[in-house]
Amino acid sequence: MNIFRFAGDLSHVFAIIILLLKIWKTRSCAGISGKSQILFAVVYLTRYLDLFTTYVSLYNSVMKVLFLATSGATVYLMYVKFKATYDHNHDSFRIEFLLIPCALLSLVINHDFTVMEVLWTFSIYLESVAILPQLFLVSKTGEAESITSHYLFALGSYRALYLLNWVYRYMVESHYDLIAIFAGVVQTILYCDFFYLYITKVLKGKKLQLPA
């Protein structure tokens, strides 16, 4: 565990808490893509199956359970409890366009052709693109509430910090995983446009509005 990895994890947990609090306090999930949230739930479900097979550390297990529980709670709040506030019409990204290519790619490019390894690889690929329905929703409505912007910034920062963690681990421990690194780079690139808008607008107190 190094500082980049820990900061990344904190940022990830922070993002999830921001999102849950936003939905809970405003009693609304307006502006949030349920499809991205479903994809994240699929990501955690397929990646953290190893909770039952491998023990890494208490920290690791607690975080995995936390991600599974909070993503389940988010999906529940969006599709059951506050269903009426869900922005159904704007959340029109077709997730099969992400699920199918990720599934095929994980069958072809993986470290080992076993069920657990392919599912892990699938979850890594899927996570890298799971935010697309959310970014698509923001681009369709042309704006995002500040709290949603903070959520996206924290969520995007998490993988960017992991990239630094991987650079550090490569140099210090000679540890690297090309699949995770490749997907992490893709994931971070997808946020770049948003990061730019966040820094130039939201941090200056303006609402995130896309240029017409």
Binding site: D9, V56, S57, N60, M63, K64, H111, D112, Y162
Partner: peptide, 10 residues
């Protein structure tokens, strides 16, 4: 052996 990956990250 590089095929066996240590999955110690989240």
């Amino acid at each position: 052996y590089p095929g066996v990956h240590v999955k110690d990250e989240l």
